[in-house]
Design a protein around this nucleic acid. Structure first.
Lengths: 342, 342
DNA sequence: TATTAACACGAAAACGTTTTCGTGGGTTTT
DNA sequence: AAAACCCACGAAAACGTTTTCGTGTTAATA
């Protein structure tokens, strides 16, 4: 095992000073060509790499981006990371990932940890628990310490920073409109509690579409899933109600797929009895039978845009005003809404 | 914005030396109680946190684990990361994620990058391209530099290090056996080229089961998907062959789900005409219709075990012999193999 | 020949810690 | 009153870089 070699060691080897070695390796013409070549050859042979912490300490830059997301096993978030990683690499940065597991506590700890100089800036998607608590002082700390960050997808209006969001209102509107245009009249919505702001906004879009097409707004058709309880059970009993809807707009892929299964179990047909549409960036919808129509979220793009927003800020000397990038959702029509139109 | 405060700044404020401040903050009784309390209060007020790079430079430890995986958007790998992250956090480590995107080049660069002192050790799952090239000298570099690492799932026998694998032979055997016990006689295997060693081993298990139950081994029933071409097309034409098999054992979830769709499109019934079983740690199988029976891979557990193996080595002064942890697969029976037995 | 310029290199500071080893003044022991 | 000891703190080295600013030697110029 070759021990890690340092400038000091090389200097000793050649009987020169550390400065000379450093300059030689940077090919500075302050050093004679001969010496440069000898030192470079030696360094190369011993596979010299500057110690990254010494560099970071000196440069006061880490070239690392921190990412704090609720859960990596959600396909959407893994897409986001993937995008962040690609964009970051392209610009010479690396990525450090921390998971909050939707916990306020862990989010606070992660931010504090990463803010201690470990990263130059971070990308955060807020945990559910944090949103429901409405407590964002850990972000204020970041601001106080002057660490730039970008909120991605799960954002909060009150926090002044760059943001990347999808147009959830429009997405909800388009999803609902698509169902209406396929002949649905009693459209149910399968959602999460309102404090999750993306869900709230999708509902706004839903309501907007209903209004536009003169359909009544029926609160009993809105079902809010309680994540802490048996999700499948709740959705099943919602689907099994006597006076069932003719369409279900689910706020995520799991709810859509779960509803689909419940509908089939009841013996009803999708899409003819009940059409189903989901909101997602995942694969389940594609492989379900029938395949589920979705509003695509483009997590990868969000990651890319977020990373670029962050790096731009890091590398700009000016204090630019905060931006909010809106990534459009796109409709992918599959079998679950493909009714025989009359 | 509070500027970041350092020991030096505090020292200046109190007119004492840096040493005194450092010791006060560590509550060393070398310093008078009064001074300690004053300094601690001040540091606390200004939210002092030691610069992590100064610490890392001094301690020659980063408390960071590097993870290099082929793709984060595969549910299995995101589970692995999730496990690594949990175990690492529990023991005071953080996680840095890099993606190889199955590319040899990127894997080499990631390893080199992380090895430059950025991390204490790493967990790697080898890229497909690397496996097919059979070129592992970048791992030798890690060994030469004395950086501990653990191979997870996609391992290579020739590399001496700790490993976490599933028993793919046994998994393949059990999957096949399950099909046989459900009355299947002509069992096809949907796999990847043999250089992916997990696939190779699953095939070994498959063959072992066939032999044990006196079923003939028919090479024409083994279809190797070429990832670089149209996957769906290849699988569809395999399924559409005239003399179709009565079961398909797919080496991953996507192939299983794709086969399922192709079978249904052909108008055949799953499981009665063709039973389907997959190898996975994903959700697609659960939400497919019919739900697909799988051999579960337990990525989370693999991540946890990998991280612990690595940290144990990092924190042990002895040079322990390398370990290989084998994580058992478990069979989850769903509808796709649930035939009416005779 | 005296001045200047070019060359090739070294010393030292700086980044922010921790820790070992002083050291000066006061207090206790003989 | 001399010797020993404590207390409370400081100086400095060490981790590994980069970079600015010398400085001594040689070569070119006036």
């Amino acid at each position: 095992m070759k021990p890690k070699i340092t400038l000091k060691a090389i200097a000793k080897e050649f009987g020169v000073s550390i400065s000379t070695v450093s300059k030689s390796l940077k090919n500075s013409n302050e050093i004679s060509l001969e010496m440069r070549e000898r030192i470079q050859a030696f360094a190369n042979y011993y596979n010299y790499r500057p110690n990254s912490f010494a560099l970071k300490l000196r440069n006061q830059k880490t070239l690392v981006l921190g990412v704090v997301i609720p859960e990596i096993t959600h396909h959407f978030f893994s897409k986001v990371i993937s995008g962040v990683e690609q964009a970051a690499n392209k610009r010479g940065y690396n990525v450090m990932v921390c998971l909050s597991n939707e916990s306020y506590q862990k989010e606070v700890m992660n931010l504090a940890m990463l803010a201690n100089g470990s990263v130059d800036g971070l990308l955060v998607s807020i945990a559910n628990e944090t949103q429901s608590k409405g407590d964002f002082k850990h972000f204020q700390e970041l601001i106080d310490e002057g660490i730039p960050f970008v909120l991605v997808d799960r954002v909060e209006d009150k926090i002044p920073c760059d943001k990347v969001v999808i147009d959830d209102v429009k997405g909800g509107y388009n999803a609902t409109k698509h169902l209406i245009e396929n002949g649905c009249k009693r459209i149910a919505m399968l959602t999460t509690p309102d404090y999750v702001n993306v869900a709230y906004q999708r509902k706004e879009g839903y309501e907007k579409a209903l209004k536009e097409f003169d359909l009544p707004m029926d609160e009993s058709l809105i079902f809010r899933v309680d994540k802490s309880k048996d999700i499948q059970g709740q959705i099943t009993s919602f689907v099994n109600q006597k006076d069932y809807p003719d369409a279900i707009f689910a706020v995520n892929e799991i709810y859509a797929a779960t509803a689909l299964k419940a509908i089939q179990k009841r013996g009803l047909n999708v899409p003819d009895d009940i059409a189903v549409i989901g909101f997602t960036d995942g694969l389940i919808s594609h492989y379900a039978t029938p395949a589920i129509t979705t509003m695509e979220q483009h997590g990868f793009t969000m990651g890319v845009e977020g990373a670029n927003l962050l790096i731009n800020r890091l590398e700009s000397e000016k204090q630019n005003p905060f931006e909010t990038k809106v990534i459009p959702t796109t409709l992918t029509v599959r079998e679950s809404t493909n009714r025989n139109k009359k």
